[in-house]
Design a binder for these strands. Structure first.
Length: 886
RNA sequence: GCCGGGAUGGCGGAAUCGGUAGACGCACCGGACUCAAAAUCCGGCGGUGAAAGCUGUGGGGGUUCGAGUCCCCCUCCCGGCACCA
């Protein structure tokens, strides 16, 4: 055994061993029939070039769980793949004149090497890349099924247009009016495209959230908010304009205030607004302003309410009073019918609007004991469950719920409306005007219109040699792709050049992992064995987009009879981000200069407190700007590759697990990485020192885990053993809670116990001076004390190595073999604390008198309450505490 | 505004059922080894105090023999949603 810990050598050897023994090949036919399956999945990466720390954290968490469950006896599967379509490939292509396909495949090859160097227990035989035809053909196939069932449909609609990426974005991909990827201000454009009717599943997607106890509360809440169910009344104001009769439909959650309507407001894009603008240039100009200006403002919520009267009047559905219609910039065309009733007395926005334009304010709700004033209505009328109707004719005196019921009933009787549920969720627009994506399998025929590509012509293969130049979709210029024959009439036709949103690709990859190699079906019976995913791990940033789409896609597959489960991910762990310190300096020109943490020297006071910072280069002060996500622009990134090269994968993994619980953010600290390395070195050194004794014992009793040592343990050894088993018990508890930071600390504590001098000394009272150093341990005589000591060390090390195995698999693998515990720690039984070891003769009790801590007391573990009280009363501290009391 | 999560030493973080607050690590301080330094090892490390003790988990109340933990009120921080009618 090497005396020095050499991570690169032992890590390479361990990985060669795993590869040679096909250790991580998963099978639907487990070795033992009673083995439960455990499908552990980390969100697959986009092959952007190289791994970042977020990936390392994500995949380490997944790997720890995979290896832990394997040693616990589960039939585990941990696959990996590549979310390989996407815009960065096109951008890189434009910069380097390289086809996106080549760029992507090169990145995959490099990043796969990086993942392998982390020592992940991945079944690479299931690897997939979404940009390969054998994967995306099933996107196309399912899309065609959705067209048949009406889930997929084509429409022309105002869409979110990202001017930088030159493509449409789904609502989910627009954040604060900007593109989720580019940050560019989104424009509105009317473009035809394909949509998936996710709204048909809105009710299911919402109600099933309650049946996902393994998901974080936060994610479920975010999805519920996004789906946005609201109950109210949809009704119409009839109108008759120049003998052109019609109805202005609106939606309200506050039908009880219907009698307080003093105006109506419609969105700029509303047909009624367009009609009024026909002979009103001023209004037309205003509508134009709204259309172009509104989304430009990132802070729409605080934008001033603006409007203009249309001069058109509609009729109040119950009173028949004429109501003026306005165009309002605060009315959204995309929600409800793009029109609202205006009740200034009981709605904040309507109030602001009415006040600005001098529209009447009519109170129709009163709260007993409060005096109404339009300015102060919010203060006393915040809760709609209080208050009753007034000035509302026959509805006077009704509370909120009864008034809504009564008014809805009257509207229904008049044939003008009824109660309705309204959703915030919109259908999912999947057309993208981009090259590097899955082709939409449609052919446009001049005679037959839009014709689906027949199944036997799938996949529609994307040419991989295009180099985009930034001027639109290069597919449109590829005659060999575009020109085709209409499948229906055979006439020359054009192939659709839009590709699918890449979120389609990631909506079902987890199911495909269960069925590698099937080229005749999207999925097969093997999904029945592996799915749903038992543990999914990924970033919180996917809480809405990817996770909601996947839940929707799963339901579509279920309704087509492809799968039988409702939810794809039984348990979800959202790992925290990896942060690092940010150092800056203001430049002369007023800009900000960033300094990498290793370019900064911290100034400390005598207690170790940071008092200032300066740049290493020039000694001038820099300011500390707290922590933030690692990024190139802030110069605070740490490259996983150099970390692994310096310390090895085990140190990187151990540090990641130790620094913070998985769900919390992790603040980078170079010194703590050193600490992790130091610990693993100490583990190795300790194993080296005891190598011969442990090997001797293991060779004598190859299968032996005897629960009693050959010669009895000394008192100190007994205590040490109890401590080890107590830490083990704690570690097992924490593993169950996914609290890996305290598991790591339990490992450190166990090593500390094993290293403590008392373990190898006879009971001769307190040991004077420092304990014997490592070299002396080797020369220790083989007395009875040393025999029981060897036994204790062997047991302690076997526990420690197995606890470490999921976190630092390479060193655990090497030590397990070096010390002859067995051939493969992967096959070792998970360690369990032994009751006898946990027993104590004496226990320490804390003495509290009147709630104040007054000392401690050692009593026999078997003592009963009366005995303890007797001992306590006899103790001096108690006497003193009682005696001092008045 | 609404929803969710937080606040514990110089720092990252422990504390499972209401029962020794600060485990473990980092940083720092002292010592050993060394010509010296690094590495390593030993010891110390919330505040205050010579000590006994007192005090201390964002702030204020409460329940309890006993509260970081339970209840009420407040402040601040992080994340999500938001002219959603």
């Amino acid at each position: 055994m090497q005396p020095q810990y050499q991570p690169s050598a032992i890590e390479q050897a361990a990985r060669s061993f795993w590869t040679a023994s096909k250790s991580f090949l998963a099978s639907e036919m487990p070795a033992r029939p009673d083995q439960p399956k455990y499908y552990c999945l980390s969100m697959f990466p986009y092959p952007s070039g190289k791994l970042h720390m977020g990936h390392v954290r994500n995949y380490t968490i997944g790997d720890v769980l995979t290896r832990y469950h394997r040693m616990r006896g589960y039939n585990v599967m941990q696959p990996m793949g590549w979310d390989a379509f996407g815009l960065p490939a096109e951008n890189a292509a434009m910069q380097n004149q390289v086809p996106p396909a080549k760029w992507t495949y090169d990145n995959i090859a490099y990043m796969k090497g990086q993942l392998e160097s982390l020592g992940l227990a991945i079944d690479w035989s299931r690897e997939l890349a979404t940009c390969k035809p054998d994967y995306y053909r099933w996107n196309q196939w399912l899309f065609l099924r959705m067209l048949e069932s009406g889930i997929a449909y084509k429409k022309t609609q105002v869409v979110n247009w990202d001017p930088v990426d030159q493509t449409v974005l789904a609502n989910e991909q627009v954040i604060d009016g900007r593109g989720w990827r580019t940050g560019a201000v989104i424009e509105k454009r009317e473009i035809p495209g394909y949509y998936l009717a996710i709204t048909k599943y809105a009710e299911q997607l919402l109600s099933a959230l309650d049946r996902l106890p393994g998901w974080p509360e936060r994610v479920r809440t975010m999805q519920a908010n996004w789906i946005g169910k609201s109950r109210g009344v949809r009704f119409s104001f009839p109108y008759d304009l120049d003998r052109e009769a019609g109805q202005l439909w609106v939606y309200t959650t506050r039908a009880d205030t219907l009698m307080g309507v003093t105006f109506c407001a419609v969105a700029a894009e509303h047909p009624l607004a367009a009609r009024a603008a026909r002979d009103n240039p001023e209004l037309a100009a205003f509508i134009d302003e709204c259309r172009h200006g509104s989304v430009m403002e990132a802070d729409m919520a605080t934008m001033e309410k603006k409007g203009m009267p249309t001069g058109l009047f509609v009729t109040h559905p119950l009173t028949g009073v004429p109501i003026q219609v306005w165009v309002g910039n605060y009315v959204l065309m995309s929600y409800g019918d793009g029109a609202v009733m205006g009740v200034p007395a009981h709605d904040e926005r309507d109030f602001a609007f009415a006040k600005k334009y001098g529209i009447a304010i009519a109170q129709v709700i009163t709260v007993p004991g409060e005096r109404f004033s339009p300015e102060a209505w919010q203060a006393w009328y915040a809760d709609k469950t209080q208050g009753v109707c007034i000035n509302s004719g026959r509805f006077d005196g009704l509370g909120h719920a009864q008034a809504v019921d009564a008014i809805a009933a009257d509207l229904a009787a008049a044939g003008l409306g009824d109660k309705q549920v309204q959703w915030r969720l919109r259908d999912w627009g999947v057309s993208r005007q981009r090259y590097w994506g899955c082709p939409i399998p449609i052919i446009h025929c001049p005679a037959c219109g839009d014709v689906p590509v027949p199944d036997d012509q799938l996949p529609v293969v994307l040419p991989e040699d295009c180099v985009p130049d930034g001027s639109g979709n290069p597919l449109a210029k590829r005659a060999d792709f575009v020109d085709c024959a209409c499948p229906r009439c055979g006439a020359p036709a054009r192939r659709e050049t839009d590709t699918m949103d890449t979120f389609v690709d990631s909506s079902w990859y987890y199911a495909r992992f269960a069925c590698p190699g099937n080229d005749t079906a999207m999925v097969d019976e093997r999904v029945g064995y592996w799915m749903p995913v038992d543990q999914y791990i990924g970033g919180i940033e996917h809480a809405i987009l990817h996770l909601l789409y996947s839940r929707f896609w799963t339901r579509v597959m279920r309704d087509l009879g492809l799968v039988t489960y409702d939810e794809p991910f039984a348990n979800l762990l959202t790992q925290g981000m990896v942060l690092n310190h940010i150092f800056t300096r203001r430049t002369d020109k007023g800009g900000i200069q960033y300094f990498a943490p290793d370019e900064v020297k911290l100034e400390l006071d005598a207690s170790g407190k940071v008092t200032g910072a300066s740049a290493v280069a020039d000694g001038q002060p820099v300011s500390y700007d707290g922590v933030g996500t690692m990024s190139k622009s802030k110069r605070n990134g740490v490259d996983p590759q150099s970390l692994i090269q310096t310390y090895g994968a085990d140190t990187a993994r151990f540090y990641m697990m130790f620094a913070s619980p998985p769900e919390q953010t992790l603040e980078w600290n170079d010194s703590s990485v050193e600490g992790a390395y130091r610990f693993l070195r100490r583990v190795w050194a300790f194993a080296h020192v005891w190598h011969d004794q442990v090997v001797a014992l293991n060779s004598r009793e190859p299968n032996g885990q005897p629960e009693t040592p050959g010669s009895p343990l000394t008192g100190r050894q007994k205590t040490a053993r109890r401590e080890i088993h107590t830490h083990l018990k704690q570690a097992n508890y924490d593993f169950g809670k996914f609290q890996f930071n305290t598991v790591a600390s339990a490992c450190m504590k166990i090593l500390k116990v094993l290293e403590s001098p008392g373990v190898e000394m006879a009971d001769v009272g307190p040991v004077g001076g420092a304990g014997p150093d490592a070299d002396q341990r080797l020369n220790f005589e083989h007395t009875a004390v040393s025999a029981s000591r060897d036994w204790l060390v062997r047991e302690g090390l076997s526990i420690l190595i197995r606890l470490l195995a999921p976190i630092t698999p390479h060193i655990a693998h090497a030590l397990w073999r070096e010390l002859k515990y067995g051939d493969d720690v992967l096959d070792a039984l998970w360690p369990e604390p032994i009751d006898i070891a946990l027993e104590q003769d004496e226990i320490e009790l804390m003495l509290q008198v009147n709630g104040k801590l007054r000392g401690s007391l050692r009593v026999p573990a078997a003592a009963d309450k009366a005995q303890i009280e007797l001992i306590a009363r006899a103790s001096e501290t108690v006497h003193k505490a009682i005696g001092d009391a008045p």
